[in-house]
Design a protein around this nucleic acid. Structure first.
Lengths: 206, 206
DNA sequence: GTACTAACTAACTGGATAGTTAATTAATGG
DNA sequence: CCATTAATTAACTATCCAGTTAGTTAGTAC
């Protein structure tokens, strides 16, 4: 028999609906009534579990970061050469963005607010810690076996990898209009990944 | 004696205030009352000259595009080698973003709305036309003198150039928090430009 | 100088929106 | 089975906000 009350499930439904709403409308554009409705719960539940709109958004953001970093951490890169490992990270970030379009939109919303939620979150930093350590290790390996340049800053590299894909996808609407080309067709998406891999590998290679 | 009425001036003040407000708060976060107040005009003037919030935003966007493309067109690239010309374009886009932080924030706001204003604007496409033609010419020169690869797509290149700088700046808040580094210090900004030039030139060079 | 038009003002409106209140009902532990 | 707690509901509120109305006043053309 189905439970009539289920705190965990209700919380989950709210978070899912909130993620979609914040991603599609931004923080200011998002409507708490809409979140409640599409979660199928009473609006007061959002306030009961999360306090207010800002706090709800903070949790949504943290969850989003947690998910991408968790999936990234699951990649097995140790048996790959440094160059192959970096290529795999480029591919991962691209496919993650494609499969989870809310992710980049949430980050965008947060940056429009000057990162006020992540700045207040102790979690965020911790979640992204391993992400950086991992790249450092790859660069170290590449330095040792001579396949990579020895002056690559891991932060710059991580930023560039994210940038090439993120910008393309987040600005797909203006870019497709300006350049009069459908940048979201399968062929174009494949082509973009090739360009990104090419660009990044060319830069890090010795 | 100062005119008590001045249509052109009023229009200009509204546009300037609107640009700043839309840039700092996004479209949904922007308040027409705030625009009117900081422009020092009666709110009804916005409706008198522009119709509504959406139409006002459209004009602001068009003006923003017009400005960057105009300044870009003023660069004298013909006497530079293809490689130098591309490097100059990378530098230009970076310094333009730094000097006009509203620009990237406006584009961001527009993309959060799925580009609904640019899609409706015949101007936008026309304004960005020369931007693409110019890159095509540089690539052609480079192909002829053998300094550049012959398989570079000008659209991909333009996107990558914009991406490396745009992403860094628009996400400065989350990135600085996540990586625990002040990415907006002068040293870091200079370093980023070097990375961008290095990355792009490495990719296009034969 | 008069008639006309465009610039400008102030006060208003209606719907939307984040958040609250107060009560009800289901689960849980002893 | 009873008392307590947590989940849930519905109705409400105060504020905010884009857009409007109904007018006044300054330029301008003849």
């Amino acid at each position: 028999m189905k439970q009539r009350r289920n705190a965990k499930e209700t919380r989950r439904k709210i978070l899912e609906a909130a993620r979609d709403e914040f991603a599609s409308a931004g923080f200011e554009g998002a409507r708490v009534d809409r979140i409640a409705e599409s979660a199928g719960v009473n609006k007061n539940m959002l306030y009961h579990y999360f306090g207010n709109k800002d706090a709800l958004f903070s949790v949504v953001l943290d969850e989003a970061y947690r998910d991408i970093r968790q999936q990234e951490a699951a990649l097995e890169l140790d048996h790959l050469s440094p160059l192959e490992a970096i290529k795999a990270l480029v591919t991962f970030s691209w496919t993650y963005y494609l499969k989870n379009p809310e992710f980049i939109r949430l980050l965008n919303a947060e940056n429009q607010l000057q990162g006020r939620h992540v700045k207040a979150s102790a979690d965020t930093r911790q979640i992204n810690q391993t992400h950086l350590v991992r790249m450092k290790e790859i660069l170290q390996r590449g330095r040792e076996d001579g396949s990579l340049r020895d002056d690559i800053d891991p932060i710059q590299l991580n930023i560039s990898i994210a940038a090439l894909g993120f910008f393309y996808l987040i600005n797909q609407h203006t870019l497709s209009t300006v350049y009069q080309r459908d940048l979201m067709s399968n062929e174009e998406l494949d082509e973009r990944l090739r360009v990104m891999q090419d660009t990044i590998l060319c830069w890090v290679r010795r």
